[in-house]
């Protein structure tokens, strides 16, 4: 008896999961209260959580779920929704009408949704909105204009949209403290600065490389000679020591001879290291240069 019962349960489970996963969400049914709304949001694959440890503000996360415009009405049954995440949902302008009614909304994530310029005007009522993420949406400068009435807007993300630098400049005229990403001018400035650093480092590395190269060509044949000099210096130090005289001069001479010998003996190895370093610096220079070039053509 038991196996039959649980295989039924099992089947029910297996039937429901693919439905959620493959994009056929349960149809919208009005929620009578917050608890019901939370239950429905979870059925679509989303979650409702506190937005911060303190306070009772909520965050609704429907990222990558099959939520549709209609489903956003569940959010209106909840109190104090401060954050809404709708990345990669099938949400369009009709959904923005519902979102426009969440007067306390502070952060709205609409990345890669189907909203358009025409729909953004529905957000004008969001007097508390601070962060708006429109990454990868099909919006342009006309849509940005509808964001003028948002008094608290602090950060706006419009990467991979049709928004132009001119459109951003126009919006910033009335919102001087608004941070808009991407900031092409800043990106270019930073890319140029990175390139400068890499160029300078490469030039100095090149000087060191030439020295190492010369050493590798000239010094190895002198290793025996320098070894002899070093041994002589050591002998002289010992003699001075046994005589009980001042050893400081002899010590310095020995140290210098040792250094010369080691430089010659390691010249080939040092050249090999310098070659590797030079290659790395060249790579850094090439990487920073190609970024500057890419930003210039953008």
């Amino acid at each position: 008896m038991i196996p039959v019962r649980c295989s039924l349960v099992c089947w029910l489970l297996l039937l429901t999961i693919p439905v959620v996963g493959r994009g056929q969400p349960p149809p919208y049914k009005p929620a009578a209260n917050a608890a019901e709304a939370i239950k429905r949001i979870e059925e679509i694959g989303g979650s409702v959580r506190k937005a911060a440890l303190e306070g009772d503000a909520l965050e609704v996360d429907l990222r990558s779920t099959a939520a549709t415009d209609e489903h956003l009405q569940y959010l209106l049954a909840l109190k104090n929704v401060a954050v809404v995440r709708l990345r990669e949902c099938r949400i369009g302008d009709a959904g923005l009408v519902h979102l426009g009614k969440i007067a306390v909304l502070k952060k709205l994530h609409l990345e890669k949704t189907q909203i358009t310029d025409a729909g953004l005007k529905h957000l004008a009522s969001l007097k508390e909105l601070e962060v708006l993420n429109l990454f990868g949406c099909g919006i342009g400068d006309a849509g940005l204009n509808s964001l003028q009435p948002l008094p608290k807007l602090k950060s706006l993300f419009v990467t991979e949209t049709k928004v132009t630098e001119a459109g951003i400049t126009a919006l910033r005229k009335t919102k001087p403290n608004l941070v808009v990403v991407p900031d092409r001018a800043l990106e270019r400035e930073q890319a140029e600065a990175a390139w400068e650093t890499a160029k300078k480092a490469l030039a100095e590395m090149d000087v060191r490389f030439q020295v190492a190269k010369k050493d590798a060509e000239n010094l190895p044949p002198r290793v025996a000679e320098l070894k002899k000099k070093m041994d002589e210096a050591a002998k002289k130090l010992n003699e001075t020591k046994s005589k009980g005289g001042d050893v400081s001069g002899a010590q310095a001479a020995l140290k210098a001879a040792q250094q010369q010998h080691s430089q010659a003996a390691n010249a080939a190895k040092n050249f090999e290291i310098a070659q590797k370093h030079l290659a790395a610096y060249r790579q850094l220079e090439a990487d920073t240069r190609s970024r500057v070039e890419a930003l210039r053509t953008k």
Binding site: I38, S47, R49, A52
Partner: peptide, 15 residues
């Protein structure tokens, strides 16, 4: 009151 309880418990801790 139930909403209070809901905000504290069922909706869980913040992300």
């Amino acid at each position: 009151p139930w909403f209070e309880a809901l905000a504290r418990a069922s909706v869980g801790r913040p992300r």
